[in-house]
């Protein structure tokens, strides 16, 4: 079943040197699956995520044939209607918890606010639900955490709190924009397995934006590889190492390997033709 259908999405920004096209004609669909978008910085992967939630502000321009959520085109919605979509239908977890949590509100206040914006729950109901959510993201000592401020939390805890906040309205789709790149390797796995189990239990669709190819192979079902605003390759995550596009191969080969030492690392040679080839469709 298709939850989200994006067709021919363009994101443009006017600059002094003319129009800059950050995303150039990207199409894909998302079912109840874990879809990864990978690419280097500047390839347009985060912009794709933001464009879906209509978070790109003027002077940025978003055009698309359609961005439809369960058959309803989001592009035709007013700003007020979009506010009901954000959070309730589609949630987004940002990269760095340090910049995404309000530093002058306690964790509890923030989670309760997020919940009550989308439901008519009373304060005590919201409090109970918040504790429950913190438990779901394996935070111990929830009552203390509810009273604490963001600076008292470690990076891993902050990110888990963000996830708890995003999941509390029970969205259909979760967009995770590099949710673990600010975290340690050991904490990374923990956060990922939490996202994974929540996605499976609730049957959500997940868009996982990342630059880490190894992570994506283990964690996702399908991968879109982006280069210069376009999708250059679509493949199953478990077949990523068999990828055919020279860009994907180049990215994979440039990683140092723990068990396969090389004298020198392979360097990516960029072919100018890659950025002119039309975008490959990620639709099923």
């Amino acid at each position: 079943m298709t939850l989200l259908d994006v067709k021919d999405l363009w994101v443009k920004f006017p600059t002094h040197q003319g129009l800059f096209e950050a995303v150039r004609g990207v199409s894909f669909t998302l079912g109840r699956e874990r879809l990864a978008i990978v690419g280097e910085s500047g390839s347009g992967k985060s912009m794709t995520g933001r464009a879906i939630l209509r978070l790109i502000r003027p002077p940025g321009v978003v055009t698309a044939d359609r961005i439809s959520l369960e058959g309803v085109n989001l592009l035709h919605k007013t700003e007020r209607e979009m506010r009901d979509v954000r959070g309730q239908k589609i949630s987004m977890v940002m990269q760095d918890p340090k910049f995404s949590l309000n530093p002058v509100m306690t964790i509890g206040q923030q989670i309760i606010e997020a919940y009550r914006l989308h439901s008519n729950a009373t304060k005590s109901e919201a409090y109970e639900k918040s504790i429950e959510m913190l438990e779901a993201v394996s935070i111990r000592d929830q009552k203390r955490v509810m009273r604490a401020y963001p600076h008292e939390m470690s990076g891993g805890m902050g990110q888990r709190i963000m996830i708890a906040m995003m999941l509390i309205p029970d969205p259909e789709i979760l967009i995770a924009d590099e949710p673990t790149s600010a975290l340690d390797v050991s904490v990374q796995r923990q956060v990922l397995s939490i996202i994974d189990s929540l996605v499976k239990e609730r049957g959500m669709g997940l868009i996982f934006i990342s630059h880490d190819l190894n992570l994506v192979t283990d964690f996702c079902d399908r991968v879109l590889i982006m280069y210069a605003g376009r999708i250059v390759e679509v493949c199953d995550a478990k077949n990523l190492h068999k990828a055919k596009h020279p860009y994907t191969q180049g990215l994979l080969n440039s990683l140092p390997k723990l068990h396969d030492p090389q004298k020198r690392l392979e360097v990516l040679n960029r072919d100018p033709a890659w950025s002119t080839v039309a975008s490959i469709s990620g639709r099923i």
Binding site: E40, L265, V267
Partner: peptide
Amino acid sequence: DVSVQAEILNLLSDLRSRNSLTYIMVSH
């Protein structure tokens, strides 16, 4: 990025052998 990381790591290896440097490297 991983592609740029490869370039920088290669550069550091080259510099080490060319200038016989000693490295202490912190990484996760």
